[in-house]
Amino acid sequence: MSEIPLTHILFVSTALFFIGMYGLFTRRNMITMLMAVELMLNSVNINFVAFNKYLFPENLDGVFFTIFIITIAAAEAAVAIAIIINLYRSHHSIDVEDATEMKW
């Protein structure tokens, strides 16, 4: 079985990153926006693991970094969801278009 070249994996991760960015900019539901951000962070994880395995297999910097990113992404999502729940209590909606009291 021939090995998958690194460029294929980088293509997937970069595509995932920009899909996440596109989702963040176009979606109006806060939970979906949060999912889009997670997509961006996961693309970074793929990058790290791929670089680590293909280019620098002698030490595990990239893999460790990935573990920390997963942990912090969970913490960030927890705080974000707490904020969204609190926002839902006062606005009765999780659509960002409804939370636009402050502008300019």
Binding site: V37, T100, M102
Partner: peptide
């Protein structure tokens, strides 16, 4: 109301910015 709106804007933009930062770090690596 304004306080939760502010927090939502802060967490979303900081999550996005750390996404950019991390992608930069991964390419640097």
């Amino acid at each position: 109301r304004k306080s939760s709106e502010a927090a939502m804007k802060l967490i979303m933009s900081s999550a996005f910015s750390s996404g950019l930062l991390l992608f930069g770090i991964s390419l640097m690596y």
